[in-house]
Design a protein around this nucleic acid. Structure first.
Length: 120
DNA sequence: TAGGTGACTAACG
DNA sequence: GCGTTAGCCACCT
């Protein structure tokens, strides 16, 4: 237990990458969704999409993190199984005004929220 | 210390 | 058009 930061709480100050991921996710407007790749690209690592998903998986323990607004580049709820129930993610999105059908975000292209453009 | 893993993405056959 | 392979980077065992 020295420099180990597996405090499970994963504060936004864990590191820049994680911090930015959480920060960006929290900045996603209600009723909007984005993709792992978009966040990764915003952070400067286009191929860091896996890190984004990984970060969310470890940080989702924080209920303040609207990870349900983050889906893969196809608008598919690839992480729905991580929300406890296969429909939890969809329920959350629909409750925010995002239409989800067949585990896929409807009107994805229009609901897409690009941090590079919105946060620029 | 080194290897494995992962809520992804893009390219290739 | 679909399946497979390779690349990415940081955390965990």
């Amino acid at each position: 237990m020295s420099a180990k930061k597996q405090e499970t709480t994963y504060s936004p100050a864990t590191n820049d990458f994680f911090g930015n991921v959480y920060d960006v996710v929290r900045l996603i407007p209600k009723g909007r969704v984005t993709s792992y790749g978009a966040i990764a690209a915003y952070l400067g690592s286009k191929r860091g999409a896996r890190m984004v998903g990984w970060a969310l998986g470890n940080g989702y323990t924080q209920n303040d993190l609207p990870a349900h607004r983050v889906v893969n580049r196809n608008g598919l709820l690839s992480a729905k199984l991580q929300f406890g129930t296969p429909t939890a993610m969809q329920e959350k999105l629909e409750s925010e005004g995002v239409q989800v059908k067949d585990d896929k975000v409807q009107d994805w292209h229009n609901k897409f929220w690009d941090p590079e453009k919105e946060l620029s």
